[in-house]
Design a protein around this nucleic acid. Structure first.
Lengths: 139, 139
DNA sequence: AATTATCGATTACAGTTGTAAACTTCTAGT
DNA sequence: ACTAGAAGTTTACAACTGTAATCGATAATT
């Protein structure tokens, strides 16, 4: 299995625009990001290039200006990055960490309902307790 | 407000041991991590030094070998890192991202109960929907 | 066709991270 | 007190990141 190449914070900003618009020209990305951030065009170009190198973006070079398409779905990227972060945590703490996220995130009623169902379902097979593995081998 | 200095993946490994043991000598950290990883002692020493520079660890130099103490609580570190990661996400996606985490994490029945209560409570004031801000200014 | 404005690629440069060897300074055992 | 071994410090070095200027290619304008 290959190493998950993670996106950096700056790269996330670019990808969010790409996902939202579906496909973009560098001009569009630059337009949005120069409003959102204080980056210069050159900086944004660099990010686009790096994302291509990491295979998160692909340019359709048959058109000019190039049209960039995401090569990873937003959901997959979220899945990878978020779980990757969680891998750092002591498994005993994950429940509370999720609680922290819930408190700090705006979530729609619908999503909350879904989460509740998910939890209710998960509870059926949940362990009484999870023990810390911070000192164990086999990270 | 000061920039949140984030811990790297490697540094997390060290901190988890420190938090779990409360206070540690480098020897203890090395002992655990040479079992968990293929890092050399020198590597682990470097990480400890960097953690001191970042003020996540402090050495009590009155004892020899030094005894290292965490300067940030595990909960605070989790809070900062996890929310920092979530800041990257489109706010529309956070609910689903949490769902993803729930599915992929082992959580105790107790924690699940807590999360359900939290959600039920949050639902009372939750918005009908959250709209994407990926193209908005004021990141 | 020549000039200019765009767009894309190349180069830059400092700071961070992963990874570790080498060097120095204690401390404990002889 | 002397020396080996442990503990701590300095140095190393490549890859990755943030941040961007500049150079070269393409397209649009005169």
């Amino acid at each position: 299995m290959k190493e998950i190449e993670n996106m950096t914070k700056a790269e996330w900003q670019v990808m969010r625009i790409v996902w939202t618009l579906g496909e973009v020209t560098s001009k569009q990305v630059i337009e949005v990001l120069t409003r959102k951030t204080d980056w210069k065009q050159a900086t944004i170009k660099t990010l686009i290039i790096r994302l291509q190198k990491k295979n998160f973006l692909k340019a359709d070079e048959s058109k000019r200006p190039y049209v960039y398409h995401p090569q990873i779905s937003e959901n997959d990227a979220i899945h990878q990055n978020v779980n990757n972060m969680f891998d750092n945590l002591c498994c005993m703490k994950k429940g509370k960490a999720i609680g922290d996220l819930i408190q700090n995130s705006d979530i729609s009623k619908g999503d909350i309902q879904d989460l509740i169902s998910l939890l209710q379902d998960k509870e059926k097979t949940a362990p009484e307790s999870v023990k810390c593995d911070c000192l164990e081998a086999t990270a």
